[in-house]
Simulated assay, not measured.
Amino acid sequence: MRRNFNYRANFNHRREGKLSGTFGFSGFTRDFLSVGAEAPAPHTKQHSFAAYALERLDFEKVGFQFGGRIEQNGYRPEGDFRARNFLGFSASGGTRARVWNGGTFVANYQHSFRAPALEELYNHGPHAGILTFDIGNQDLVAEQGDGIDLSLRHTTTRVRADAGVYYYNIRKFVFTAFTGQDDAASKLPIIRYEQSTSRFVGAEANLEVQAIPTLWLSGRVDYARAELTDQSKPLPRIPPLRGSIGIDWRYKAFGFRPQLVMARKQDRVFDHETPTAGYAVLNVAGSYTFVTRRLTHVLALNGNNLTNRLYRNHLSFVKKIAPEMGRNVRLNYTLRF
């Protein structure tokens, strides 16, 4: 049971020449109460407050953006648990420059702060949603990281493309560590919340091309490599190299969108983590739209995993016992007015 109260206020200041921006504050209070013999966390009151500002400088061919945020999070658990309080600062800066007709270069830097979540600090019990036995860590400290991302974007009437790379170094990164042990009572695998310095490096690219006025071709690829640098181990639950290719055909009221989704095997795994095989899955979506008076009717027929491929999502905690859904078809009717 959760009782939450949230508030937020944003203010836009008067534009001064090429400078514009917003500032504000937000926060919430949370009264977390989990009942039952297997309640994973104690009754805890959490309060959070943040103040922030974001400014923009816009010129004809280049723009700059910079901002900052100060944030406080406090936890007051009942019973034999320690109260915790976290205070930190985040900041970011970026630039956007037009480099050719339709082309834009974007660069961003950010320094981040994240307080541990309530569940990461205090959980101790079965987690029914992911079929694990969670053990929190009351000694966790706040994450702090620095990162950059660079991207190129190109947009014209017939081509939409973007490609980017990123690098993040996060100190005291909180992650779920598989222990290889099972809880004696629940028989669920035990995971512990631990932290260590981590490094994330990745890239992604998207491309959409209009072949003819009614037909678009699309493709996407992304890859991430994440490691615990002080342990020289891969982080758990990191997706493999993934990609997709698809078609979007529209003619009058009809739409037809087949897509092939692919993933490579993931064998860069953490201790006691299960590797997963690669796969290719075919999905097809079709729709018919018609209008009557002031109403829009949409009939949609979606088919997923039409080849009925047995495959597993590497990000899933239950992938060992529960593969992804097999062949399935859905018929939807949507009425808009």
Rank of each mutant, 00 (worst) to 15 (best):
L87W: 02
K18E: 08
P240W: 06
V201A: 05
P258A: 07
G255K: 05
W216K: 02
L19C: 09
Q181M: 05
D267H: 04
N304R: 15
V141I: 12
S186W: 01
G147Y: 05
P240K: 02
E120W: 05
H314R: 11
A37M: 08
F317P: 00
D162Q: 15
L131R: 14
R242F: 02
Y168P: 00
A107Y: 10
P275M: 01
G219E: 11
Q138W: 12
F23P: 03
F317N: 06
P239E: 02
S26K: 11
V165D: 00
D58F: 06
R330K: 14
F25Q: 11
R114G: 14
F105A: 09
T157R: 14
D80E: 15
Y333W: 14
Y279D: 04
K320L: 13
R96H: 02
G202K: 00
Q231F: 09
E119N: 13
T276F: 00
M1C: 06
I247S: 10
L331A: 08
L188Y: 00
N123P: 01
A117C: 05
V291H: 11
K187D: 01
S198I: 01
S287N: 14
E16P: 00
N4V: 13
Q138E: 15
A224K: 12
A224V: 13
W216F: 12
G326N: 02
P236C: 01
R237N: 06
A142K: 07
F178P: 00
G180H: 11
H111K: 11
G202S: 01
R8C: 02
M325E: 05
E55M: 03
G36V: 09
V221K: 08
L215M: 06
G326D: 13
I130R: 12
A117T: 12
N108V: 10
G145N: 04
F64I: 11
F81P: 06
G27Q: 13
R114A: 15
L121D: 01
R309M: 06
K18P: 10
S198D: 07
F105C: 05
D271L: 15
D58W: 01
A184M: 14
D271M: 15
H124L: 05
F86Q: 07
S151K: 11
I238H: 00
D183C: 07
R84Q: 09
P213Q: 05
N10R: 06
K265F: 00
L87M: 03
F290C: 08
S186T: 14
R312G: 05
I190C: 00
T292P: 04
S244D: 12
G24F: 03
A184P: 02
T214V: 05
F5E: 07
